[in-house]
């Protein structure tokens, strides 16, 4: 297992290099322009000057190599410096500069991370916590009213796009009932019970929308997988041995049903990092999702590239973790 892990980690380096190159080329090919946002009153020659000032005059391979150096050497040194508090660890050179804000990409990401972790991370956690028990019980009591209701809610929750449920919740809870604010205040510092209550109120709607969406998906996989296993022979054997239902279901069946669920959860965790694009925009949470989408619309190549590659690293990492967990839950799976 250790050898396998090491091999996969080493293999991850060329994989990620290739992914970074692919993303870079994709963004190069993509028909956007950082000047698209500017008013039409700015004449073409000024636009060309602005493009050159962004460094877009250089050939693509030079820009890629420069970015790669900054991303793999300079930016990590700044991250290290801010974690340890040792300022002199940071390499003093130019950093990855965003086209839109002309400021280091790393600083903006660090600024956005808390909002996203609070809202998207929390709702993912809630989603899993809600989904697993519902999925298990739905499968155990298949076609009971509980199962039917669960199916109904989760399918409706999944099939309604968040760009619909978001405004609907705003209309009901902010405008008609006046319970929650429309505007998420990202500058709120939770330092008292009063502010904590405010934070809870402003988080309520986005967290609810996302939890519903995440839980719907995971519940379906959990239920299907449990159903598959509940009819297996080993379950009959376990029951025949006189084990309690509790142990049969929660230990034997659950453990064997976890593989697809782990996959889905592991696929979802990196997505916390890219944030919830639509939900963040509707509720103005202004986390990483909103950052990514505004960067894409503005063709802010350094920002999109950096975010996407960090996302790729997380994907590779969590897929490895999922693979390792398979072997934990099902010892028959062996990689060596």
């Amino acid at each position: 297992m250790f050898n396998y892990t090491m091999r996969r980690l080493l293999l991850a380096i060329p994989t990620l290099l290739f992914i970074a190159l692919a993303i870079f080329l994709l963004l190069e090919l993509s028909p956007g322009d950082p000047m698209a946002d500017m008013p039409l009153t700015i004449p073409p020659d000024v636009r060309e000057q602005m493009r050159l000032a962004l460094g877009l005059g250089e050939p693509w391979y030079i820009r890629f190599v420069k970015w790669l150096y900054l991303f793999s050497v300079v930016e990590p040194s700044h991250v290290l410096a801010s974690i340890t508090g040792l300022e002199n660890l940071a390499i003093d050179s130019q950093r990855i500069i965003s086209f839109q804000t002309r400021s280091p990409v790393g600083d903006i990401i660090a600024q956005r991370l808390p909002q996203t972790l609070w809202v998207v991370g929390l709702s993912y956690l809630f989603g899993i916590m809600v989904a697993l028990p519902i999925g298990i019980y739905s499968a155990y009591r298949q076609y009971s009213w509980f199962d039917q209701a669960g199916t109904f809610v989760s399918m409706v929750g999944f099939s309604l796009p968040t760009f619909f449920t978001g405004p609907l919740l705003i209309l009901i809870f902010s405008i008609w009932l006046g319970w929650f604010p429309i505007i998420y205040d990202t500058t709120l510092v939770v330092d008292s019970w009063h502010n904590f209550a405010l934070q809870m109120r402003q988080m309520a709607m986005p967290v609810f929308v996302l939890t519903l969406y995440n839980a719907a998906q995971i519940t379906r996989f959990m239920r299907a997988s449990m159903l598959d296993n509940l009819t297996q022979d080993y379950v009959r054997t376990a029951r025949a041995k006189g084990l309690t239902e509790r142990i049969v279901v929660l230990v034997h069946v659950l453990r064997n049903s976890m593989i697809p669920v782990i996959t889905v959860i592991a696929l979802g965790i990196p997505q916390i990092f890219t944030g919830a694009i639509i939900t963040e925009q509707i509720f103005r949470v202004n986390g990483l999702g909103q950052l990514l989408i505004t960067a894409i619309y503005a063709t802010d190549i350094p920002m999109v590239l950096t975010l996407s590659v960090v996302f790729a690293i997380l994907i590779v990492l969590f897929n490895l973790i999922a693979d390792l967990l398979y072997a934990v839950f099902d010892p028959r799976i062996r990689y060596d």
Partner: peptide
């Protein structure tokens, strides 16, 4: 397995919007 799964990682990591824009173009 390795090759296919790395390809899956690649597709997961590609930003959707630019990909679609390029395809459409």
């Amino acid at each position: 397995d390795g090759l296919l799964m790395r390809m899956t990682d690649l597709f997961l990591a590609l930003p959707l919007l630019p990909l679609l824009l390029v395809m459409s173009m």
